[in-house]
Design a protein around this nucleic acid. Structure first.
Length: 302
DNA sequence: GGACGAACGAGGGGCTCTCA
DNA sequence: TGAGAGCCCCTCGTTCGTCC
């Protein structure tokens, strides 16, 4: 009986130990769970904060989107006509002039502007009629006439000329500068060939156009007589053209200058003399090109 | 009065078609 | 292939009306 009681006490003791161990384990698990819960709550808080930030950002972007949409709708109207001054804007007039230079009919220019505007999703507030376009053309002619007349009153002009070939065609451009370094483009013309005689004929055509433009006041010839210097590249045709130009200019001088027969030989020579300058920039360009190739080859052996 | 639009006609240049 | 006719389009000029 006593042994049986001792055995039962041992078993009870063991069970108590087991229960104590399990309690300890449970406490540990409860502590870990509590920690996990705390971490999870912190993460949830951060995620909620992040969601709120994204919601705020989304709201800002939606407002910005609405603002840009309204801005685009407001800018849909293209102001070509100034309602305040009751006239077309300077940009519009320049646009009309450029379209006219491309042989767009006066009656079609308004429709062309409208069509191009629709391509850009814009709506012009007004487009010029054919009459207005023709009036702008008159303005352009008046400005050109005034500029040529002003040019004819200047002296000591320098003529710049150069020839270029594009798409199998030859073109010659003429420009002058005055003593104040102001530049004036006289013309860019296509030529049948690039001989010096053709260049001179082309220049004569431009001068005659000036004469016609200014109602026969010999403005073109006056511009010619005001040219005292020439500048061009060293092309042989340019050199010969300058000689031909000097001779032609002398014949014009006899018609333009009053009392030419009364002048002395020295005075005539002084009036006829022209200073010919040649640009050597092409030499420097060629020199740079050759040097560049030479340096490239040198690099291969270093 | 200034700026613009509509309408018209004259003249010129370019393109197409026909014919020899 | 070249010349000529016809057509179309554009430029230029003019007049008159409208709007601000």
């Amino acid at each position: 009986m006593k042994r049986q009681i001792e055995r039962m006490e041992r078993e009870l003791k063991e069970k108590e130990n087991v229960i104590q161990f399990m309690n300890t384990e449970q406490k540990i698990k409860d502590t870990d769970f509590s920690k996990s819960m705390h971490v999870a709550k912190e993460k949830l808080g951060k995620l909620e904060e992040s969601v709120n930030t994204l919601k705020a950002k989304n709201k800002d972007l939606e407002e910005e989107n609405d603002y840009v949409r309204n801005l685009i709708q407001d800018n849909n109207l293209l102001e070509l006509y100034d309602e305040t001054s009751n006239q077309f804007t300077a940009d519009t007039i320049e646009c009309v002039m450029n379209l006219q230079n491309n042989n767009i009919s006066a009656s079609k220019i308004g429709e062309v502007i409208r069509t191009v505007c629709s391509l850009c999703k814009r709506q012009p507030n007004r487009v010029p009629s054919a009459t207005t376009v023709n009036r702008i053309s008159d303005m352009k002619l008046s400005i050109a006439t005034k500029q040529v007349e002003d040019l004819s009153k200047k002296s000591n002009l320098t003529l710049y000329s150069d020839e270029t070939s594009k798409f199998g065609k030859s073109f010659e451009v003429f420009a002058v500068t005055d003593e104040d370094k102001n530049s004036y483009l006289l013309g860019l013309r296509e030529m049948n060939c690039k001989s010096s005689e053709t260049v001179l004929e082309t220049f004569k055509d431009i001068l005659q156009d000036f004469n016609d433009l200014c109602d026969g006041n010999d403005v073109g010839f006056k511009v010619l007589t005001a040219i005292k210097n020439t500048m061009s590249d060293r092309a042989s045709t340019e050199k010969k053209f300058q000689n031909l130009l000097e001779n032609y200019r002398t014949t014009i001088l006899t018609k333009i200058i009053d009392g030419w027969p009364m002048l002395t030989e020295e005075e005539r020579a002084a009036s006829s003399r022209m200073n010919n300058f040649f640009c050597s920039c092409i030499f420097l360009v060629n020199f740079a090109t050759v040097c560049g190739e030479g340096l490239k080859n040198l690099n291969r052996y270093i």
